[in-house]
């Protein structure tokens, strides 16, 4: 089943299993069912708890905050991740503050879902990956959808927590099939999972066992799907062996799986679609350089999109955004 439907089924199960779950968002009700159709069918079956809102992202986040403070489990869709900027006051000064500044006397477990990312020609304000601006906000969990993580498990875990979360969904994942590990494999790659206590799982993917890999690639979301193809192709065509680490949780980051992999490979490439600088990759470089300074053969290679707007023109967009070619080039350099 394609990811959009898997996610819709996940949200349906959340609504069915937990009467505290409420979905809010712009145009999420039937028959439209959301800009990306993730919530299609849900408002028909749960009319009170699946609510289309006015175009008011700040209030969507704020009303969600109140619901959560009152014991409900709001899951709000921000139609385009670009519009997360309009929720920033709620996220930074309200939602993530309450539990801590009230000394644990209140909880505000809001989940914001945000269809994000480019490669669809939507232009400067409908194509961004803005999650980097939310990384490092104290008490906020930032989680990225990918094809190797079952959204059912992710949402089950998030609904167990009292902390708020931002769940970013790259738009290009929606029409793709979820590819979960079966018998230790995903497609042509070996697959295994690592879960540190209290953290969401990371998935390892490689053509050969880790000991034979000479580089670790750290990627999430849609970029992880691109990176998996690069890893597979480099192994087949050039006998360059890389281990791909795909975390589901970006912040707080569980560095343990990354550390394990880089300890064996001695080299790290990070991949993200967000713009370059002050990013997930630069944080990874800082942390891994510090922890594994003696084990690294070379500086951490950071692959990110240009520090620029995302152009509308398909041609210009693909040259500005990270694509498989940039990942390929970086992995070749870092594997040496």
């Amino acid at each position: 089943m394609i990811f959009a439907k898997e996610l819709g089924a996940t949200l349906r199960a959340c609504l069915a299993d937990d009467p505290r779950v409420v979905l809010l968002g712009e145009d999420i009700a039937d028959p439209y069912g959301g800009a990306f159709k993730v919530t299609r069918g849900l408002s028909t079956d749960f009319p009170d708890r699946v609510r289309t809102t006015p175009i008011s992202e700040g209030a969507i986040a704020g009303v969600s905050a109140g619901l959560a403070l009152a014991g409900y489990r709001p899951i709000a869709e921000i139609m385009f991740g670009d519009f997360l900027t309009l929720t920033f006051d709620q996220v930074v000064n309200h939602i993530t503050k309450y539990e801590a500044m009230y000394a644990g006397q209140a909880h505000c477990p809001v989940i914001l879902r945000a269809p994000s990312g480019g490669h669809r020609g939507y232009g400067p304000t409908h194509s961004q990956s803005l999650e980097k601006h939310f990384l490092g906000v104290p008490h906020l969990r930032v989680v990225a959808a990918s094809l190797v993580h079952d959204p059912r498990r992710i949402f089950a875990e998030l609904l167990q927590q009292t902390s708020p979360a931002l769940y970013v969904e790259h738009k290009l994942l929606y029409p793709e099939n979820l590819t979960l590990a079966e018998n230790g494999r995903i497609g042509g790659l070996l697959a295994s999972e690592h879960s540190s206590p209290g953290a969401l799982p990371s998935v390892f993917l490689s053509a050969v066992p880790r000991e034979r890999c000479t580089v670790t690639v750290l990627a999430y979301g849609y970029q992880a799907a691109l990176a998996a193809r690069v890893v597979e192709r480099l192994a087949l065509e050039d006998e360059i062996f890389a281990e791909l680490v795909v975390p589901s949780q970006l912040a707080p980051m569980d560095w343990d799986p990354v550390e394990r992999s880089v300890s064996a490979t001695g080299s790290l490439v990070t991949v993200e679609e967000g713009t370059a600088g002050w990013s997930w990759g630069t944080e990874a470089a800082a942390v891994i350089s510090r922890r594994l300074f003696q084990r690294l053969r070379r500086p951490v290679e950071i692959v990110a999109s240009d520090s620029d707007i995302v152009p509308s023109s398909k041609l210009k967009e693909s040259s500005m955004l990270v694509g498989a070619d940039r990942i390929d080039a970086a992995v070749r350099v870092a594997a040496a």
Binding site: V22, G58, G62, H94, K97
Partner: peptide
Amino acid sequence: KSNGVQGGIVPAAAGIALA
């Protein structure tokens, strides 16, 4: 509850009302 940022408490209060 109280919060020192202007405005943002209003949607939170509405969320409590919705609850």
